[in-house]
Design a binder for these strands. Structure first.
Lengths: 310, 310
DNA sequence: CTTCTCCATCTGAAAGTTTGATCATGTCTC
DNA sequence: GAGACATGATCAAACTTTCAGATGGAGAAG
């Protein structure tokens, strides 16, 4: 019973008629004969099983069915146009999609800013964002899952990744306001730190090896997710390092307190980790990926404060 | 340069191939010759300007372009199928859409329940909901904007509307906890009420005429929107009647207090307004509208508490 | 009343699509 | 490793769909 589905072209004719207000007007607009338009509409109506236009009056007017079906037709046409644009972009050398791996420590708001512009500049390249920590992040670049990465550049596998330094992220030590360490006035002696559980971001990939960064306590809980670490810090389950921009709000609101570590030689009481853009040498990104990395460099160069606060 | 857009049929072939895993499998599934499938894919690839399948291996595999384009194709096909279903529903006598006018006093959650089932039962009839108060509601039925209505049945124009009683909504008088009337212990004398501003739901349609319901104070503020009245009551700007089910939460939380009116003859201290379904006699609803009204009757008959609480 | 524009219909011609046969190639079974 | 089997590309012929151009009736405009 169901006739072959309406063709895409028929829907375009339908739209053209509605916009032009008449069959022959649509024919002129489409550079076709009026009889072709009439024919297309007749076939469409036949396939849908319902009249779309009321020809009783001089100007054809949409029936109620036509009126409610119209938005669906418009949607289909828009989607088809998007598909064609997408394909055309691919044909012109753009990536079909852009997979991005972001280290959880990376200042997300800089990336979001960049992606906003990216969406306008490359509407046909849908981005796909992965978030991982430490070695897990570079692994996605190495195994080809992601085309470009925004990473911490201390990882060990230098050879295969092409990297470019971006900026630094500041990691400070914090604990919940309810945590015993918060009660101590002034710098905290290292001996005291060792008596409390430290929450350490870990890494199931094994790529960062056994090296640990900033681990001061013998009692550690390992977490593979920075969000989970954040939550456990706020819950008072331990102390540990966090990127400054991720805890600024909690510090201001008093939910977390900064822990200043008593240092032997008056050294820094925070850690600076270098951020970088990266991609696999064997699979350099296309124009869209290239643009995203360059644009991020510009953004962060223009406003380095992003990585330390907000 | 841009060839004529791909046809809908070509996308279907694309999907069939992906599902079947081979060209000839797709051909069997579509009851067509294998050469037709090959031809369709070739044309599609030519029109899109990019290869979709990698034929190097025995089984054709999607290229990256094909993989990212596939969801778009699927979406278009689904939308087209929805359009056809919609049209088929219309052809079978269903309404193209169902416009419903709901009185603001009507217990919305009963309608939401009904609409949930409605969406499953009539996936091709998109509902369109209007909310108005009093005469404004029946007016939309009378002028043909809406096919069915859920109204208070005290309005005056009986002749043109076909109505069916549903249930009653209980209107009680309330004031904010901060309002002077809330401070009075026990029933409030009418003389006291007259000294405070009463918020009265009004009606710009003029259909309910000059009749007022439950207006007790000479000082009135008229509001055409029940939500606004609710907000102003909570802000303590006056006292007034509200459907019990809309203020139950506020009463429980103490934001609003009920006002019991001292009555001369021990009468009720609340108002009962009859609810009804309605439609214009000249434009009876189709199957979908009919179903919605009947189903609402059943729901409310099964659980009349909906209209008084929750 | 004339002229213009509108849409439906008819016709043959052009374009697009399908079929069935054939071929080269890759996979599976024994 | 040989034969059976399945796959995709290609081609020509039959077929279907779509198109342009001409014609006619009906409403709108002057």
């Amino acid at each position: 019973m169901s006739q072959p589905s309406p063709s895409f072209d028929q829907l375009q004719v339908l739209l053209a008629i509605v916009e032009a207000g008449s069959f022959s007007g649509a024919a002129r607009r489409l550079n076709r004969a009026q009889s072709a338009v009439t024919y297309a509409v007749q076939r469409l109506e036949e396939q849908l099983g319902t009249a779309l236009f009321d020809r009783a009056s001089y100007r054809p007017t949409l029936t109620e069915a036509g009126r409610t079906l119209l938005p669906r037709a418009r949607l289909i046409i828009d989607e088809m146009r998007a598909l064609c644009d997408h394909a055309q972009g691919i044909a012109a050398g753009l990536e079909p999609e852009l997979t991005v791996i972001v280290d959880a420590m990376f200042p997300m708001c800089a990336l979001l800013d960049a992606l906003r512009t990216f969406g306008v500049r490359f509407p046909t390249v849908p981005p796909r964002i992965y978030v991982e920590s430490l070695g897990g992040a570079s692994e996605l670049l190495l195994n080809g899952t992601c085309a470009v990465g925004l990473l911490l550049s201390f990882s060990s596998e230098f050879e295969l990744l092409q990297r470019q330094h971006l900026s630094d992220v500041t990691v400070i030590y914090v604990a919940a306001a309810s945590h015993p360490l918060s009660w101590i006035e002034g710098p905290v002696p290292r001996a005291e730190l060792r008596r409390h559980v430290q929450l350490v971001l870990s890494d199931r990939s094994g790529l960062t090896g056994t090296r640990d960064y900033g681990v001061l306590s013998p009692q550690t809980w390992r977490l593979a997710d920075l969000g989970a670490k954040h939550a456990m810090l706020k819950a008072g389950l331990g102390w540990g390092g966090m990127p400054a921009h991720l805890v600024a709000e909690d510090l201001a609101a008093g939910r977390l307190r900064r822990i200043v570590i008593q240092s032997e030689a008056g050294g820094d009481d925070f850690i600076t980790l270098p951020l970088c853009t990266a991609y696999h040498r064997d699979r350099p990104p296309g124009p869209a990926g290239r643009w995203l990395l360059d644009h991020l460099s510009e953004i962060i160069e223009a406003d380095p404060a992003r990585t330390t606060a907000d």
